[in-house]
Each structure stands twice: as C-alpha cells, then as structure tokens.
Design a protein around this nucleic acid. Structure first.
Length: 493
RNA sequence: GGCGGCGUAGCCAAGUGGUAAGGCAGAGGUCUGCAAAACCUUUAUUCAGCGGUUCAAAUCCGCUCGCCGCCUCCA
C-alpha cells in the first residue's frame, strides 16, 4: 500500500510520489503574529503535525517548514495601538504561539523561519518577476500583474472575469488591474521598512511564503498545506509568484484542512465567535482537544462545542482507563514475557491477539488513505473493547496474558506516537482529569471525607436509609461515591 | 450572481460500487443491601427526497429540498 493524498489542485486523491525518493518536503503556512491563536489555528497545526509525524513514521526523511509572518499591516496596527515597536508585538505572539503548540504536543518543524529574516530572498523574487514582465513598480509599491500568468486561479478554480465582475476589491489607482496584488509596499512615515530597489518599504502578504519555501525546500517541492481559507487568495498568489519567477512547477500536492465551526457557523474574527487556544485549555485538557480534532477527517468541518469536547473527553478517558488497567497487569509482572501461541490463550485472548496483530496494518491503511485519523481512532476503540473483555477474565500471574497485553500496549503506544496521543502515563492522566473536575466544587474534601465516614458507620449498623441520604446529598453536590471492597472513594461527576 | 462542499441512528463520526466502523447518550446484564463506578451485551433492513445507470449504489448520474463555505483579512 502506498500513501494517497487528496490534492486540492486536481480535486482528486493521488498516490504520493516524492520528488526525491525517500524524502518529503512540506511547507505549511504559519501564523501572522499579531494576536493569540484560536482553535482554528490549533486544528491546522495539529493536523499538519500528524501528517509530518506520519510521513516520518513511514520512513520519509521529512523537511517540514512552518513560517512566522512577522511583518504585516495587522502587526503594524497593533503596534500603533499599543504605541510600541512592531517587534514587541511579534516577539510576544511568537512566544505565545510556541507555548500553545507545545501544550498541544506538537513536534517542532524542521525549520521555523521568519519573514523578516528573508527580505533579501523576497526582493530577489520580486526583481525576477519584474524582469520577466510579471510585476511592475508603481509609486513605491510593486504589484503582480495577474493577467500575465495564464494559470492564475487554477487552484481555486475560478476565472478572472467573474472575479472582477463581483470584485469587492478596492481599485487602487496604483494598480493596473483591480485583481493585481502587492508584492512590495512603500512604507509610510513611522512604519518599519527595509531598503529595496523601489525605495523603503516592506513585503506584501504572500511573497514571504514563496521566498521561504524556495529557500528551504527548493523551487519545486512536495506538500504545501494550510487552512481551506488560504486557497484564495494566499496560495493562489504564491503559485503565481513562484511559478512565474522560477519557470517551473511550485507545489506537487496541495493539502487544505477544513474549518472549525461554532454552532455550525464558521468561526472567524469578523464574526467574533472565536475561542483562543488558551481559553479552551482552561476548561479542557490539551490532549482532549487534540483527540477531538483528530476524531474527524482533516478535510471535514468540525463543530466546536462544550458537548462535543466533553464527548471527546469521555472517549479519551475510556482509552486511558483501558491503558491504565493494562499497565497495572503488566507492571505487576514485569519479567514474565513468554512465547505466545493461540493454544495458551482463552477465546477472548485469541480475539485480542488477532485484533492487535492487525491493528498497525489497519492503522497504516487508514492513514495511507488521505490521513484518515478518525478511522484510526475507531480501530483503537475496537482493540480497547477486546482488551477490556480479555482483562475481565484473566487470572493473576498468567504469563501468556501478560505477554499479550504487553504487546498490545506497545502497539497502541506506537500508533499513539504518530497521532501525538496516549503518551501520558494513564493513571496520572486520569487522576488529573479527576482533580480538575473537583476543583470547581462547593464542598471541601474534608467535608466529603467526614460524610463518607458517617455513611460507612451507618451502613455497618444496617442503617441504610441514613447511608443513602448521605449518598444522595453528595450526589446533589456533584460528588459520586464509589464503593468497593477496599472501602469508599469518591469522584466529582 | 459565480464557484465549491455537505446532508449516514437521539448526538458526534468513518465508509466513494459488493451489501452500514467506532465513540457519546439510551436500554438490558454482571456486580451491589439498594445504587454508583467498572465491565459485558445491545441499539440504522438503512444512508435528506425522487428518479436513472448497474447483477449489485450510502457510494455513479440527473432533478428537488435543506445547510454551509469561498469570491474581502482569516487556519
């Protein structure tokens, strides 16, 4: 089986054939660093993190480039609002981005370039475009002449005439065609600037990605990704710039992730219905957010809501509860591994052996089919069910059982490593969820413990009505009692 | 107006020609003084509707209805 990916450019799933055998080059549009990241950024970055990990997992030597766009109108506006240098803004939000991504468990890309470190490369591309007649200088600005690139709009599959007809684009008098876009903008007084053949100015949006991808991945490379909303104009303009300047194909496979919706509506800054990653992580575990994102296919829209996040949390808890149970069995007998054969296993054991031996192959098949992480998670749940059934019937010290569980545990960890999931210590993770649920309660642990003692004594005296009264009282406060042979414990509901 | 996508059980969600994964919730069971928790089992003759192609369609084609996105900064 080989990897097949949905290519926005062709609108079809295609077999991935790397430009250089054994290697894969991948560029993903990072963020413009003028504000905190929202959960849409979380989705895009998690999705491409998993793609990065999977490409490595199946043996590619991957160069993953994810940029910071650290010069832009929005950054300048924010700096002006606060009355600070633009670099104060960019440094603050680069740091915030790094923190957010680390909390979500992302691997570091191979390179994380900043636009302002590549002004020379940007100027070189603009000069090449002017020399080839694809761009023109106009009163301190430089514009790309879209009509000179016949394939313009091939990614978004539109046509210029229609775009112009319904264009809400401001017709700048500096532009020859309203659809032309800025490669270089002359700076106004007080704005950051770099020296260029066209005077003092700064790069337009789009050109930085052409420059940085070329610098680190070459004129042609394998994957370019980003959110669906970048298809037009950002990626369309990158294609126009890079292909016109270099005279060769730019990107071989275009990958775009779907949106995060809030109540089935697109989340966006202009609608004001967005949540930052930090806001969400105050209420939900980072791994829960990651699990939620990966439980849908990356191209589908996902609906963000408390209910959906809570369901994801419940699902992840189920998996961790199973892993915790497996760990308990395994660590009790660390050196008990034996040769496995179906003869020494119960029917449930044979079932689990079979399921687990297929798991990694099914995982690979799912991920090979356009990175189907949702199907992968379904496969994990199937194994969890089998493992639970098996664990319910095994006897302590059964070496074949321990060996089998050990094997399953290792395989789930291997798969989890690619998804960036299940890497926490299960017992600890579960305990942490419990603590967080407890923290918002209006009753103290001491009060609860005292009532538990009272209830235990009542029950010993066969005064069940008093015992049940206490139980119901605590339940109303959100405390669920858990009776077991070892005594009574409690958890927040 | 142009272009594109989506509509699968109460909810979330895989499945792009071979007879509906998985999760949550619900129900039943084991357990329990009764519960809870945990675990087990179970839950769509059917994939928005109507036609068509095919031996075979949730999957392909056409039409209808509904929802959404892009065309402006946006992951």
């Amino acid at each position: 089986m080989s990897l097949r990916v949905y290519n926005t450019l062709t609108g079809e799933k295609e077999t991935f054939v790397p430009l250089v055998p054994g290697k894969a080059g991948m560029y993903v549009c990072g963020v413009t660093v003028y504000d905190y990241c929202h959960i849409g950024h979380a989705r895009a970055n998690v999705v491409f993190d998993v793609i990065f990990r999977y490409l490595k997992y199946i043996g590619y030597d991957v160069t993953y480039v994810r940029n910071y766009t650290d010069i832009d109108d929005k950054i300048i506006n924010r700096a002006n609002q606060e009355g600070v240098d633009y670099r104060v803004i960019t440094e603050r939000f680069i740091q915030a981005f790094d923190e957010d991504m680390a909390r979500l468990g992302l691997d570091k890309p191979t390179v994380e370039p900043k636009a302002t470190d590549h002004i020379d490369g940007i100027i070189a591309i603009i000069e090449a475009l002017i020399a080839k007649g694809h761009a023109y200088a106009s009163d301190g600005d430089v514009y790309y002449a879209v009509e000179t690139f016949p394939e313009y709009l091939k990614l978004s599959k539109r046509n210029l005439e229609e775009m112009q007809a319904g264009a809400r684009v401001e017709v700048g008098e500096k532009k020859k065609n309203p659809m032309d876009f800025a490669l270089w903008k002359g700076s106004k007084p007080g704005e950051p600037w770099w020296q260029s053949p066209w005077g003092q100015g700064r790069p337009g949006w789009h050109i930085e990605c052409s420059a940085m991808s070329m610098r680190f991945l070459g004129e042609t490379f394998d994957f370019h990704g980003g959110g669906k909303d970048l298809i037009f104009p950002h990626h369309e303009n990158e294609i126009a710039q890079s292909e016109a300047a270099n005279g060769c194909a730019f990107v071989r496979y275009w990958l775009h992730n779907g949106f995060v919706n809030i109540n089935s509506e697109k989340m966006s800054k202009s609608l004001g219905n967005f949540f930052t990653i930090r806001e969400v992580l105050e209420r939900f575990d980072p791994e829960t957010l990651r699990f939620f994102i990966l439980s849908a296919h990356y191209r589908s829209p996902i609906d963000f809501s408390d209910q959906n996040l809570s369901e994801a949390q419940a699902g992840l808890e189920r998996i961790y509860a199973c892993l915790a149970a497996m760990d308990t069995v395994i660590w009790e007998n660390p050196a008990a591994l034996v040769e496995l054969s179906p003869e020494v296993l119960s029917p449930a054991g044979i079932d689990l052996l079979e399921k687990s031996s297929q798991m990694l192959a099914r995982f690979k098949e799912a991920m090979d089919d356009d990175f189907n992480s949702a199907l992968t998670i379904g496969i994990v749940f199937e194994v969890v069910r089998c493992a639970n059934r098996f664990m319910a019937e095994i006897q302590p010290g059964n070496k074949a059982a321990i060996t089998l569980l050990h094997r399953v545990r290792v395989e789930i960890a291997e798969l989890g490593e690619v998804l960036g999931l299940f890497h926490s210590k299960p017992a600890k993770w579960l305990e942490k969820q419990q603590q967080e649920k407890t923290s918002g309660l209006e009753i103290t642990a001491e009060e609860i413990e005292a009532l538990i003692v009272e209830r235990s004594e009542a029950r010993k005296a066969k005064n069940f009505s008093r015992g049940d009264e206490i139980r119901d009282y605590l339940l109303a406060k959100g405390i669920q009692l858990l009776d077991s042979a070892q005594g009574t414990t409690w958890k927040a509901k």
